[in-house]
Structures are given as structure tokens and as C-alpha cells.
Design a protein around this nucleic acid. Structure first.
Lengths: 333, 333
DNA sequence: CCTTGCGAGTTAAACGTGTAAGTTGCGCTT
DNA sequence: AAGCGCAACTTACACGTTTAACTCGCAAGG
């Protein structure tokens, strides 16, 4: 099945072709500091490498240096939307520009323990959405992994990479609705328990926003992705005097909109709704959904910068600027 | 930054603790065929490995064997939805059960050439959505990669892994609508050119379905994710006598629904619509969207089986059963 | 004239595995 | 009792890199 007669082209082949030693090839290709190589030799090596289509073996390099250029990103086993997909795409590009390779591993319940994964891959950094135990973090650092980042996490712990932007998102929702004259807000919390790591900071942001605008705390209700149940929530909100709700994300927002229709009401006059994410179908909702969008490419760039700095042992870049997130105004609020 | 004084635990450590040679450790841990190890020794080695928390270095293993247990999945740079996310999650689990590790790499325009990726990682198999050039496929096989699979591709080439199910999806849409008494169908084709690798087989399936049911070929129109433009398409379909449309996916279907509302019409009486994917918001559409869903876990299992067989040099499993895809009936058709 | 320094390389030792090719000791045949 | 086969191991090399340490000429400084 596998063609084994064609050998891999190694640095020795390049060395032979260029008429130098393997070490020289290595020095040229990595342009190692404090090594003096004549322009002629350098050119010959480069030419030979190109001619042979040489690509160094990551395995050998990793084995030797003890550190690979792979950045491992652990996805949670809860449903991820297309925004995460977009983030990963941008992140992959941003890391590639820094000579790093992104490997995404979608977790699954039947998976082997993650420790086996990072012990095996010896990645340069590990990004995860969920938390690790302190023991596990210690073990990973001991194994030479430069950066271990939990992007979001329980509120009690120290702030995480994405915490700030999540809170900002929630605050922006509240500010937008307050700006429209609403004085009593609701919050549509997702039904899936595993989403609380994302939902809690967003809700906290909305709470803060209400406080700042001098509004009462939002009326929080869990809204499953089901028109009938969402209708009940809408009814309860109306009874409580709520005139506008911030939803955890666009899907929940669309559930609220479905609930509004189910109750024979119409958004935004009976109830205004604002989502998060600006998923493709947001503009196709009835009515088109006002939402908060995040510039994933900026988030990815910042994240990549953090990773690169941590690997190099430098301090991370300045906190991400607030302009990454903004309101997309449509008709639902 | 990095804790370097704690060394990695190697098979030599295990050997020392168990009082045997490194080779024995290797034989026990991989239970190599045709090697006879006494139960006592085997137990001591296993205990020592567990006690030390030993995990073999993937780098060293890959370097030695020339083949890793990583299955590389190359994502296209066009927008992927959450169904692909679900597929990957299931695939990760299915591969893990077979001792394989899934590494997903989201492509991006600014990425390094993919050849650098597979040359570096030496994966056991490469899965991709898009096509490779014949030269590239040859190069990869030569590099010892057992399986190179393009999941979908242009219709002219030989059928791909996912081709069949894609066609089946399209056919099922047509069958469902015909079963409801519709005799003149439309097809809502996506606006993004890069999606044609997925869209063409689906459309082909719908065409086939129409043929089988004795209906004229579907009236194909491109529908962007925009209510106004979608409204124009709806108008044109109605003028042509179309009473029901198959959409490329749920997002396009929701655009069609938005177009229907925009024209002051109501689905399904003026125009019936059926989508594909059963995304979470499908049931929140106005009206709730009838759609075709695929059992991603079954697809993943089949894919994993194919990969495993190819790596072992065995012939692949039987073609995926048709029961993987079915209609979810709601109100839009 | 002998040292010193430096440019331009080379040599050789790791890194942690897998595995082919030995090496024992021991029970069985003949 | 010599020989044989086999269970149960061990020895030793190879995989492709990186990198510390070394070499070798040649120009400059005292």
C-alpha cells in the first residue's frame, strides 16, 4: 500500500549536494546566530535544499530540541459554532506567519486522556477553552510547554485571555439597549450547562452595563432553542415589565424572536432583542437580528502574539483593544 | 519561563525501575508479536510505567518508525458550519478508539504551503475536503502516507468518500417534495463559489431524484444570504411555476424563507422549502424549517474505519449505509 | 617570530524510540 | 551426554536533527 522505496530527503542529502557538512546545512537553514557562513556556501546550501525539495523532519527536530513548533488547541466537547471556526482559521494564519503550526484537537468523551496528547506531541503551547487542574498545569510546564492558556473559565479564578472581551460583549449589549431608551432589561441564558464558562462573563458584563447606566439588574431566564418554551419566557418577561433582552448568542436570540412570534407579538415594538456573534443567518431572522460581533481576526492576532511571546520568554503584548467588538444594528433592537 | 530541570520520563526510566532492559519495556508496552515475555516481567513493566506516568515520545517514535499516529485533516478556507465541527468531534473520538490522533488544520490564505505541513508531521493519513494535484498525491504516498482522501471534489473525477452521501441528500430532498405532491421544483444554489464542491453533488442528487420521480429538471437559481436578493429569486420561481425548492443548506433555505416573507407570501402554501444540515436555528425559522440531516457520528465511524484499514493495508469497509441521512419534517415543507 | 583572534567550517554526541540480531539458561529428545 | 529448540531476555544500531566543541588557515599585534 505504502510506497517505501522512495526515501525521504534529509539534510544529509542537501549537504552532499552542496558539498558541505550536515551541520553547515543546519546553520544555514535556521540561520543560527553567532555562526559565520560565507555567502557562497549559504547560496549553495539554499539552492540544494530548494532543488531537492527538502523539508526538515519535525519528528527529529522535536526529538532533538525537546520542543516542537506545534501549538495545540483543545476544543471543548460542547457545541462550538462557526465563530470558533473563524477564530481558528485566523489563528492558524497568524501562527503560521510566526512559524508555528496550529493543531486543533476536538475533544470527545470517548477520547484518550488529554495528558497522553500533550505528552506525545510536546507542543510549544497549549490553548484550551476549559480549565485544567493546577496539577495538570504544573505537569505541562514541567514538560517544557511554554504557555498554557485557558481562554475562558469560572469567574472565581483569575481573568482569562478571552474574559475581557466576553464581558465587553455583554456590556455593549446593555449599552445599546439603554441607548434606545429601554429601562428594564432581560437576559436570555443558554440552556446547555457546559456553555456557562462563556455565558457567565457575558452576563457579568451585562450586569455591569446595567449598573453603569443606572438600570436595575437584568431579569435572567434560561431559554432553550425551542419556540414554545421561549414563548413562555417572553410571556414572563413581559409580565415583569421587561422591554428588551440581551441574548447569550444569536441562536438564543433567534429562539427569543421565535417566542415573540409564538406569543402573537412583534419585535422590536413588543420586545427588543440583541444577540452575539452575527452568524450568517442573523440577517435572515424575522425581524433581522441586531447583534454584537467580534473581530475574530484581531482576536486571533492578539492570541498569536501572546503565544509567540510566551514561547520566546518575553512578556505578552498589551491587552487586546476594545475596538475588536462592535454592535451590528439591524431591526430587532 | 520554562521549567527545564524536570526531565521527561523515558522508557529507560521505566526499564530501570522494572529491572529490565529498554527493549523489554518496548516489547511489553507495544505488545510486539512473536515476542515472549513472562507474566511477571510484563506486570512489573506495566506497574512501573503507570507509577512513573510514562508516555512515549511521539517524536522519537515517529522518527524511528517513519510513521506517526496522527491523522491530518485539512480544512478548506471556505466557511465551514457547525456540522463539520460535529463531524470532526465524532471523528476524533472514533480515531482515538483506534489509537489514532486527529489533528485538524484550518487552512488560511496566509498559510505556508501544505506540503510543509505534511512533510513535517509525517501523518499516517491525510484527509482533505479539497483536491490535491496528482503530483502532490504521488509525493505524499512516496513520503509514506498511507491514505490520501479528498472527501468531495469536482464531479468529473472518480467518486469521493462523501460524494455518495451528498448525492443522497439531494435526492432525498427531491423525493420528499415530490411525495408532498409538488411537480415543479427549484434549487437554491449557494452564492459562494468555493462551496461548489459540496453543492454540485447535492444538486446532481436532486436532478436524479426529479428524473426518477418523473419531474422536470429543477429550476436552479443562486441565492445569496440576503433577504432582498432572495426575494427576487422567489419571485422568479413563482413566475416559472415552481411550488417548492430544495436549498443547498439550511442557511440558504432560511434566505429563501426570508425572501418569501419579503414578497408578502407565506411558506409552505406559496412556496415550500427544504434545507440540509438541521442546524440549531432551523427549528427557530419562520416557519420552522424542514431539512435533511446526516448522522455525523455514523459518517465519522465509517471514515475512521476507512483510515484504519488503509493504514493497515487492508481494503476499506463496505460503503456507508444509506440510513445515515434522513428527513426532519417540520413546517416549511 | 610567536601568539592571538577570527572567519568558516567540521566532528561527534546527544534526543527517545523500535527492532533485528544476538545471548543466555533450561527442559527434551535421541 | 551431547545437541537442539525455545522461552525470555539483552545488545546495539538506526532514524534525522541540533549544537557544543573542535580544527584549520590566515591576518594582525606585540
Amino acid at each position: 500500500m505504502v510506497d517505501r522505496n522512495t526515501k525521504r530527503v534529509t539534510s544529509a542529502d542537501v549537504a552532499r549536494m552542496a558539498g558541505v557538512s550536515r551541520a553547515t546545512v543546519s546553520y544555514v537553514l535556521n540561520d543560527t546566530p553567532h555562526q559565520t557562513i560565507s555567502a557562497g556556501t549559504r547560496g549553495r546550501v539554499l539552492d540544494a535544499a530548494a532543488a531537492l525539495g527538502y523539508a526538515p523532519s519535525a519528528a527529529a527536530r522535536t526529538l532533538r530540541t525537546g520542543r516542537s513548533d506545534v501549538v495545540l488547541c483543545l476544543l471543548p466537547d460542547w457545541p462550538i459554532g462557526s465563530e470558533v471556526g473563524a477564530l481558528l482559521t485566523h489563528l492558524s494564519g497568524a501562527l503560521a506567519r510566526r512559524g508555528l503550526t496550529l493543531a486543533v484537537h476536538p475533544a470527545s468523551r470517548e477520547d484518550r486522556p488529554i495528558s497522553e496528547l500533550w505528552k506525545a506531541l510536546t507542543p510549544a503551547a497549549v490553548l484550551a477553552f476549559e480549565d485544567f487542574s493546577p496539577a495538570e498545569i504544573a505537569a505541562m510546564r514541567a514538560a517544557g510547554i511554554a504557555l498554557v492558556v485557558a481562554l475562558v473559565g469560572p469567574a472565581r479564578a483569575e481573568p482569562r485571555e478571552l474574559h475581557v472581551s466576553q464581558q465587553l460583549v455583554g456590556r455593549l449589549q446593555a449599552e445599546h439597549l439603554a441607548g434606545l431608551g429601554h429601562t428594564m432589561l432581560g437576559y436570555a441564558y443558554p440552556d446547555d450547562d457546559r456553555l456557562r464558562y462563556f455565558a457567565d462573563p457575558r452576563l457579568a458584563g451585562t450586569r455591569e452595563g446595567c449598573l453603569e447606566q443606572g438600570l436595575p439588574a437584568p431579569d435572567v431566564r434560561t431559554v432553550p432553542l425551542d419556540p414554545a418554551t421561549a414563548g413562555d419566557a417572553v410571556k414572563a418577561w413581559r409580565a415583569a415589565g421587561v422591554t428588551a433582552v440581551c441574548a447569550y448568542n444569536d441562536e438564543v436570540a433567534m429562539a427569543v424572536l421565535a417566542g415573540v412570534r409564538r406569543q402573537g407579538l412583534v419585535a422590536p415594538v413588543d420586545l427588543a432583542v440583541i444577540g452575539v456573534d452575527d452568524i450568517p443567518v442573523a440577517r435572515l431572522a424575522e425581524p433581522p437580528l441586531t447583534t454584537v460581533t467580534t473581530d475574530q481576526s484581531a482576536v486571533a492576532a492578539h492570541l498569536a502574539g501572546t503565544v509567540e511571546a510566551a514561547i520566546a520568554g518575553r512578556p505578552g503584548p498589551a491587552p487586546a483593544p476594545a475596538e475588536m467588538v462592535r454592535v451590528v444594528r439591524r431591526e430587532s433592537a
